[in-house]
Each structure stands twice: as structure tokens, then as C-alpha cells.
Nucleic acid binder design. Sequence first.
DNA 1: CGTCGTGGTGCTCAGATGAGCGACCTGGAT
DNA 2: ATCCAGGTCGCTCATCTGAGCACCACGACG
Lengths: 364, 364
Amino acid sequence: MSKRGDDVKETGTQGTEAAPLGPAEMLRLAAVARRFYLDGRSKVEIAEEFGLSRFKIARDLDAARERGIVHIDIRLPARLDGELSERLRSAYGLRRAVVVDTPVDTDGSADVAETRRVLGSAAARLLGEIVRPGEVLGLAWSRALQVMGSDLVDLPECTVVQLNGVLSDHADDGGSVETVRRAAALSGGPAYPIYAPLILPDAATAATLRSDPGIAGAFAHYDRLTTAVVAIGGWDERNSTVYQALDPEARERYSALGVCAEMSAQLFDPEGNQIHSDLAERIISVRAEQLRRVPEVVAVAGAGDAAKARAVGAALRSGLVSTLVTDGEVARVLLAEQEHGAEGGSGGEGSEGADAGDTGPEEI
Amino acid sequence: MSKRGDDVKETGTQGTEAAPLGPAEMLRLAAVARRFYLDGRSKVEIAEEFGLSRFKIARDLDAARERGIVHIDIRLPARLDGELSERLRSAYGLRRAVVVDTPVDTDGSADVAETRRVLGSAAARLLGEIVRPGEVLGLAWSRALQVMGSDLVDLPECTVVQLNGVLSDHADDGGSVETVRRAAALSGGPAYPIYAPLILPDAATAATLRSDPGIAGAFAHYDRLTTAVVAIGGWDERNSTVYQALDPEARERYSALGVCAEMSAQLFDPEGNQIHSDLAERIISVRAEQLRRVPEVVAVAGAGDAAKARAVGAALRSGLVSTLVTDGEVARVLLAEQEHGAEGGSGGEGSEGADAGDTGPEEI
DNA sequence: CGTCGTGGTGCTCAGATGAGCGACCTGGAT
DNA sequence: ATCCAGGTCGCTCATCTGAGCACCACGACG
């Protein structure tokens, strides 16, 4: 086939729309294509077999592809969307992006609960894949991450640290602690759970708790994390468990500061700038600066509306996230968003070249 | 991809059944495969883009194919079966073989009438494809060839000659004459139809008719034919219009001679040897020796049972046919038949090299 | 009758690719 | 500690392959 692949597109347009082929030629093209693509023979071999020049064979193969006789598709098992993943990855300069198809309900609308399950499952497999033995793995909490915890199957020996306190509203259904313990048990490494609420009434209480030996034990690992898994929340009732946990006065106060997204109770504006506030003093959680030093930050976020997608975008622009696990709907909104404000973003051209290598865009 | 393609089969077996891949690796393989197969980039380019060695990319592509992430299939439009065509072609040493899918009726059985239509349509397109300007084209008759005649759309300027007289039973629905005239009109060349029955009561009548100027005019072209299109009949009520046209005594007499197949009222035994009989004297038709001198003899035969398939096999073994147009059911029977008596055939290895032309593995 | 354009062919040469090989790593078993 | 088995990786060299070009056959046209 001719390089550059532009010819493939030419089919779509109409450059030299060739005349329809007769059955003999069709069959010959198909036979040549079968030998090449299915039997793996070289064009030289095929040329000898058919008594033609290798150039003719090459042209035949091009023709067979242009005419759709040869059909190649890239199909990913499970519910992965390769194309969206790749576009999202390069658009936001991520090291990795994992986009799962958004499951739809029987009525055609997105199935939020199922999407969380799929996200969690994908994240679980991803963790088993990217975590190396001896790593220090930090886990935050969200409903999708809870699924991740229960879906974990393979995890090399590593230290598992809880990244934040427990949300009171969800303490009953396992919560962070259970996820951390399960991961550690699976991996065979030590667990550092945090037996404390995420949000406390005041700074003093939080400070007291931070000096608790168990909690301090977890905090001590925050500077040695090699992989962190976090969730991204929006800043409204629907899209954030942290927002839900605050009283109306606090919600409004932070909203007034321009909060758009939240990661482990760290607040960000739409441009991805961290918003510092008194909230930081009343929480038991890893801090953004610490996350920034973690080589691999996996954000798992999806199963939400457009506001959720905007929150994810803001979180990505913070530069903290190196890998994103999300669903197709959010991915599409993110790509459309990037499309518009392409120039106004944080780093250079944004779309490509910036990341190159196999790592994140900035640093190094 | 590794050459030889055997690895593709290895997937089917279980050589080194690799562990299931995580989503990140899956997505990476898919991205690489997309770049290579869909965007047409070279492995070197992809290697640079991903910061890997070209060897790694090559291995990734192999892995992607083994794991089914890359899916390649050869799909022929219409109703052509490329694989059966190719196998049949090489098994019987034909220059070309065109196998159409056998259409099935609503009840699941083969739809004979529809099969004839599909055969005729394929043959029509084939003729438009392989006939060159100035050729002398000979046309026999059968129900499938009648469809061919009505489906002809493109035919270069050529002389069209009728190869045999008209079967009385089918004279009403157009018959040979109409097919020949239509082909000639389409091509813009002269037509040489035969206004006479195929089978006559006695040799004397036949001889008289052969001296008729019109008929002699057609016969005069039999030694200059460049392409002949013939049908293959079996030797029973269902599979031969010639058999149907004979009286019971004649039918039985020729059956006793071991007749298995019939082409233009030329009779053949199961091994493809011509059976000479008095029938030759009572017919108005091209003779086998004349057909043997035609560079391209296209046989259109299908839409029948196993007996029909055996007849087609016998006709092919006669060595007269260079191109066969048939349907999937007949093709499968023919291949199974060839499987068994592969060694016992007529000439040499039988399966290939016989005609070669621009095919065949040996020689050189 | 020559000329031009067009479509199809095969050539050259540089760049892409595969097969085979050895280096290296890793995880046991001795 | 040492060795081995299994796996991955990247190298070399020979082969395969593509892009571009020159050539030829054919038909339209002046």
C-alpha cells in the first residue's frame, strides 16, 4: 500500500473513482489480498506465484484496499474506545487515557451506575498492569474507585496508602478503608488506612487527628508515593461527594471563589489553578503539592453530566493528572472543549509534540 | 508482522497463549495498529512517535494481530466466494474459477432459480470483463446462460456466434437465438445465430441443415472462436436439457455408454473422456475438438444437485474448460471429490500445473 | 500522418522491514 | 553464590518495498 495512508481517505472523497470491477478481477484482487494479509506472504512471493511483477501486486493491494475488498478494523475487546482514548491522550498531553464506552440504559440514556462499574473495572485492570512491585500506591475514594477496589484481581506486592479520610455519608458501604485494605491484601504488602473523616468541623480537630499515629503513618508515605489513584468531582450536588458533605454556607463560600473541580478535597478553578482556602485546614487528605510530585497520578472520573466533564477538564489542566480513566460521553465533551480554547490552555500547543516520549508533557 | 503468516494460525492453536493484557497495553497496541494499518505510517515513523524501537513496534503489531485487536478480512461485494473460487481454481488447474454463494430459499434449501440468476449475472459481468474487442465469441445455451444474456451490460465490439441449435422445449422463452442477438447488439458486432433445432431425428436431416447458408455461416466461425461460453449438463432428467430432449430409448442407450456429463451435446464419461456416438451426427452444435482449440472456454454450471456437480467435475477433467462459473454447493462437492481421487485423475497430478498459463507453483 | 494525453507497466535506488542472533534481565532451583 | 530457563530487547545483514520516473500502447485530435 502506498504510505501516508492518504489514499485510504481518497476513497472517501472521489479522486479517480474507478470503474466497477468484473468478477474475475475482483477475485484476483481478493486472492492476492488473501495471500498477503491472511497468509502473510511477501509481495515478491505473490508476484512469483501469480506471474506478475511485484509492482503490480503492490498496486493490486492498494486497489483492493481502496475498493474495500480488504477490510481492516481495530477492535478492542471489552468496552475500550481506542480512538477516543488516543485523541484525548494527545489533546490533553496525558501519558495515558483510558476511555470506556458509556453503557446506555434500556431507555437509551446513559446508565450511570453501570458506567461507574465499567470505569472501576477498567481502572482495576489498569492498576494491575501499571503498578510494579515495591511501589507505594495511594488510593483516594469515589464510587467508581470503590468498584475498582472490588474488581482488583492482580496487584504486585506494594505498599497501599489511603489518600484521604472517610466521607461520613459513605462510611457504611465500605469506603476508602475497605478499598485500601483489599488492595493491600491482594498485593501482599502493608496497608495504611485512615480511620478518620475526610472533613472535620475545624482546623484544630484536623490537626489533632493528623498527629494520631495511624493517620500520621499514612501521611508519612505521601512524599514517597509512586502511583496515586484519585477521583475528580465537580462542584455541585450531583457531581461531588465532597460538595455533598459540606453545609450550605460552606458550599456557597467555595463556589464564590470560583471552584469548578475537586480532587481529594483540593479545589480548582476552570483553568486548573488550585484554589487555596480554609478547607485545606479542615481535611484529612493528601495535598495537591504532594500529588504533583507523584510520578503517576491516575484520575478515574466519569459517569456524569457536562458539568462533571468540565470539572474533569479543569482537573486535567492542573497538570496533576498523568493518566485519565473516563467514559465516552465525558471524553467527547472534553475534546469539544479543547477544540475551542485550544490556544488559551496552559502548556504550549497542547495537542501534540509536547508530550512525545512516553511521559507527561511538562517536567523533566 | 512475521512472514509466513503461520503465527496467525498459532492463535487458533495455543502455542504460547499469552496472558490477557491490561487496558493500557491494549490501548497502546490499538494505537500502534491504527497508525500502521489505518493511517499508513511506517513502523519507523511509529517507533519515533512512540519513542520505541522499530522492532518493538513490529512485535506489537504481531501481538495485536495474534490477539485479534487487528482484524483483517477479505470481503467480496455481491455474492462472490473468494476462498472457494481460489481453491477450486487451483484444485482443477483452471485459469479462473468464479464461485457465487448459493442463495437459499426462505425454507433454508437452495433456491435453484435464484442461483441461476446469480450465476448468469456473474457470467455476464465476467464476459464484459474478459472479452477483448475483435474477439469471436461463441455462446451455447442453458437457463443460466439465458439469464447471462439478459444481464449483459458491457461487451466490446466482437463477433457473436451461436454454438448450437435451439432446444425445442425452450424455444418459446427466447432461447439461444435471442441471447446471441442481444449480445451482438450490445457489442455492436455481427451476430451468427442458428435457426435450427439442436437435436434432429436423423443424421441426414442434420447434414442438410448444416449446409444451410445461415447455419454454415455460424459453423464457419467455430475454428476462429476466441472465447466460448458453454453450459454443463448432467445425464438425468433434472440436470440436462439435452437429456430431457431425447426419447427414452436414446437416453438409455447413451446412459449405457457411461455418459455422465454433457457440454453442447458432446458427451463425457466421469473421467472426462469424450464418448463418441451417433448423437454427434444428429445435432447442430460445435464439436468438442473445436472447443479444445478455443483459447478461453467459459463453462457456466451450477444450481443443481450432487449429480450435477459430478457432471461438472467430469467436464472439467475433459480439459476443455479454462474458466468455470458455478455456485458454492457445487464447488464444495467438486473439492471433496478432488480430495479423494486426487491421484487417479487423467493427466499427471491433475490438481495443478495442467494448464498453468500464468499460474501454478512448479515449472519455471 | 504526427502529436499529444492517458493509463498501464516495470525500472532504479533509497528507505523500510524481517529473520536470526546475542545481550540482558529476572526469577527460581541448586 | 551460581547456574539455568524463559523472556525481552535491540543489533546486523539481507531482503522487501515505495516513490518517482521512463517507457509503451492506444485512441483522440489536428
